[in-house]
């Protein structure tokens, strides 16, 4: 176990929890994991009908969702200018008069998420806001570049000012059930991150089965992941409710066993305000209210914010909104 990190609470403004130090690889635990797909799908399918938030409650929940967004741009044509615009949206995600009408202030997104080369402009643009910059790393999205370069990429990104690193795991270790290799890889990534928080992207759409998702989740937590995250957003299937259910149940088991809370980040495919409410109720039901905070939950999303803004304006005015009335990110 990494003694440097066990007793330290990290530097992120939202973080009050001791970091997950990881634990020795426990293959018995991994082998005992079960995930019944049909039952998991039934739970996921019935949840939106079981939980519903309306009126002021819905507005409050949507504001909460905004604070949990990793506002993201991961495009080949990103420029410093594009990233500055995104950061400014992160600082002020909702029009001031709407926030005034809702009686809230100080709403920002949870983080801004970019590629390595965009870290510097992002850090600069977010100066003083307290909003951390997250960088995708380790040969994102495929994670198939030379291992030493993946480690070096993390180190470079941390040096450049990223406070959160979203790494991608080697899917082949899961598909070949090489749990030791996955554990070692994750542990190396975690070490390379140093004080920066590490989010492990499982690329669940490429893992074949929910059982594999559950096992990979556990392994990454055992190896010290601060967050586990569904997808890169580049797979054909990204975050889904069944996958989320499997991952957060793994988080719950890990917490019950070790006492450490690991965060969760569904990414890709969540673009509607209504979907975000379902995710929040899923987290509330399965993990509890403590996880509804930016240090333990994030949405990886780019277009979700726009829909939430429109819903909030509808809540304030009673009239359905239009996209152009809200600042683009």
């Amino acid at each position: 176990m990494d003694s440097q990190t066990t007793e330290r609470t990290a530097q992120l403004p939202q973080v009050t929890e001791p970091r997950n130090p990881g634990m020795a690889l426990d293959l018995d635990w991994v082998a005992g994991v079960q995930a019944n797909t049909s039952a998991i799908e039934r739970r996921a399918a019935s949840l939106p009908g079981r939980r519903s938030v309306k009126k002021d409650y819905q507005a409050a929940w949507l504001l909460k969702a905004i604070t949990l967004i990793d506002l993201t741009t991961l495009s080949g044509d990103d420029t410093a200018g594009r990233v500055r615009r995104l950061c400014s949206k992160a600082r002020q995600p909702v029009r001031t008069e709407l926030l005034d009408a809702l009686g809230v202030d100080g709403i920002t997104t949870g983080a801004v998420c970019v590629y390595h080369d965009m870290i510097a402009p992002a850090v600069q643009a977010l100066q003083g806001s307290g909003i951390p910059v997250a960088a995708v790393s380790t040969g994102f999205p495929a994670g198939l570049s030379p291992f030493h370069l993946r480690l070096a990429e993390i180190e470079e990104s941390v040096k450049a000012g990223a406070e959160e690193i979203d790494i991608v795991i080697s899917r082949r270790h899961v598909l070949t059930q090489n749990w030791q290799a996955l554990y070692d890889e994750m542990k190396a990534f975690r070490t390379a991150c140093g004080d920066a928080h590490v989010k492990a992207i499982l690329a669940t759409g490429e893992l074949g089965t929910l059982r594999n998702v559950a096992r990979a989740s556990l392994i990454c937590m055992m190896a010290g992941a601060d967050f586990i995250k569904t997808s890169t957003g580049k797979e054909s299937v990204n975050a889904t409710l069944p996958v989320s259910l499997v991952m957060i149940r793994a988080i719950r088991d890990y917490y019950e066993r070790t006492g450490y809370r690991v965060g969760y980040k569904p990414a890709g495919g969540i673009s509607k305000a209504k979907d975000s409410l379902v995710y929040l109720s899923l987290i509330k039901e399965e993990l509890g209210d403590r996880w509804l905070m930016p240090d333990l939950f994030r949405f990886g999303a780019s277009s979700l914010l726009g829909d939430i803004e429109r819903q909030l304006e509808h809540h304030v005015t009673g009239a359905y909104s239009a996209g152009y009335r809200h600042a683009m990110g």
Binding site: K54, Y57, W61, K64, G103, V104, L280
Partner: peptide
């Protein structure tokens, strides 16, 4: 409860 308070408690509230 105000929106600000609900934001902190994250209660469900009534949905009749």
């Amino acid at each position: 409860m105000s929106i600000k308070e609900i934001f902190e408690t994250m209660d469900y509230g009534p949905a009749p």
